[in-house]
Nucleic acid binder design. Structure first.
Lengths: 206, 206, 206, 206
DNA sequence: CATGAATGAGTATTCATTCAT
DNA sequence: AATGAATGAATACTCATTCAT
């Protein structure tokens, strides 16, 4: 397969800078929250001047949107990578939990930043425009999986997919917001979520 | 019962001021987050000078602790007011959900501020000391209710009370963080939580 | 001897308060300099409210003048207490050094506050009016003693009393400004000053 | 000898700014004392924004250290410029007095600022670290000159070099602290100091 | 592209002083 | 006399943003 040359080396270099800036910003958000995000700190971490930072990203607002964009890219990537359409919904949901596990335990920053941006979206329209689609996308995916799972008979017939999706999302976000993250707690949490939605064992012999 | 006069009218007036300050601060936190909290704004809202604000609450740190304290007072009050020890656990849990309903829909600020302070506690030891006990108290209450509910046979035998408590708390907080709060969404959420924990209908024994 | 009753008990109590305020202010000046003098700190040390302090001493300027006045009173007292007119000048000068010794080693605060106020007098006319007379009085006393000492043949014939007075005063103040005050250093300093002014031993007349 | 170009024009410009800031700060200290030093005033005098001032000198503490550094540079310069090792000690001491004369009468601010910083060093460790070495250096130079002068027979055999150095320093500082500086008073002061230390005329023929 | 320097609009906090009681 | 509360005017310091080079 032939490597396509970048459209323009300059453009590519510039994109690298923006990526580096987004990464640095995300690290700082994980450490200090959006509240503690300072353009100077980002520039320092990237190894450039503040003015240079502003050359690449004109305002702080644009910067936070860049972070949102970088998050979206990563988020979408993960979901696109793995076509699982052929599997039953319940198994796909289990794989989602596996993905969450990786996200929550190995890259907890992703969810934390996501959660911070959602928070910010409440008061900032542009942030809302950048981040809420992701949330809706995630939510819809869960709703669809749950609905299918109900149809397939894997989940409780009286399951409310919308409400259950909310519960799952809140639980995932709540877990990542927790300072003491450990795999055991995560597994117990997911186990409980799975028991909460699945159809109870049919005790009598069916 | 005889009403005790306040220890001193001045002391009472001062406490009123502090209460007014805490209230104003909470309003602003609801509107703009802890990040957007400005001493000047609080003073304006209370109708006093910034210096007067600092007379009553010396530093911003103390101010946020005052908010935590005011939250705790309100939180504890609600739990102390209603002795329900005589009821079975599942019914008490249902009443908790009723309380949450009131909190989430009529005084959504309480949970929002609570959530903001928990967030802040992650990086601020003094805040942690002020707010985390509340969180632990709340969590323990849920864990106890769920455990009893399992013992009483109202909840699933395979329920993990710790994990379920986490799920319930996250769901409540997640709901309040949501910008579009409405009673219908809340009721569906709680309905799903209740179905998630309760023992499934015994199909054969009817 | 009959104790005169105070002109009015109220007036006396008020004067006591002012004296206590002056004393507290002087202590703080010794510790932190005039720069670090805060009305609140003085009030705290006296055990009264700031507003009460302002009742007794209306402004900070008046407060510093009060300190100057208290210093003057103490200073004058010391000089009035001991009539030594009958002694030769050189002996009276030696007694002055003894007085300085006591002042410098046992009550170093007096000279320190004095020095601080002189400094302040450079930019503050009212302070100048309150404190410079003391300085001039002290200086004149030294000039007179030195002149007489020269006349009496105890001091060098080529001694310049004015310049020597300046040297002695500067040395005393300089010593008190020094953080590491000890009696040995003081004695060596005074010894050198005495050798500096006295008529050298007549080598032949042994 | 080849003039080295400045390492970088920007660096040079920045150093100029810092020098201008130090100069302005020193002027204000002369006028109002360290107590009266305001960042805003310095910025105004230099003709820059307060924020720009903080860009070059981050804190007020650093600013005062900058002043100390600028003083030290000037102080050391004067002492390095003139190698006089070949002269007898008494003549070198006389030249010191000439230097003092210039300092006291033409650049009185230097000594005044020096004196203010020494004062401040009493309560501020970092200031002590920056300014006391200068004082010790000055003092040691005087002690050495006086000791040599005694050895050379120019000064009194019973001279205590340590005490005499203290007297000379105090006199110089005291003179500069005086608001009414004039050359006549200075000359009389130095004359008296010289007579105070030198060996009295040997009445040879008696 | 990059940077050092500059800046306006904040931001919490301090302090002498005043006022009502 | 005494005090708790209130306040205006400062004060050092911060930060996103701009500009000249």
């Amino acid at each position: 397969m032939i490597e396509l040359p970048p459209l323009s080396p300059k453009r590519a270099a510039s994109d690298d800078r923006r990526a580096a800036i987004a990464l640095a910003a995300r690290e700082i958000i994980v450490e200090k929250g959006v509240e503690g995000l300072r353009t100077r700190d980002i520039a320092d971490r990237v190894g450039i001047n503040v003015a240079t930072l502003h050359y690449h990203v004109p305002t702080k607002e644009a910067l936070i949107e860049l972070v949102a964009e970088s998050l979206r890219r990563e988020f979408m990537q993960q979901n696109i990578d793995r076509p699982r359409a052929h599997l039953p919904a319940a198994q796909r949901m289990d794989l989602e939990f596996v993905d969450f596990r990786e996200l929550a335990l190995e890259k907890p920053g992703v969810m934390l930043v996501f959660s911070e941006l959602i928070e910010r979206a409440r008061r900032d329209e542009r942030m809302a425009a950048a981040i809420l689609p992701m949330k809706r996308y995630w939510r819809q995916m869960l709703v669809d999986l749950l609905s299918e799972g109900v149809s397939e008979g894997a989940y409780r017939a009286d399951l409310d997919p919308e409400a259950a999706a909310t519960i799952i999302m809140s639980s995932m976000i709540g877990f990542c917001r927790n300072p003491n993250k450990n795999s055991d707690a995560f597994d117990r949490l997911v186990g409980e979520l799975q028991r909460a939605i699945r159809k109870p064992n049919q005790p009598n012999g069916n």
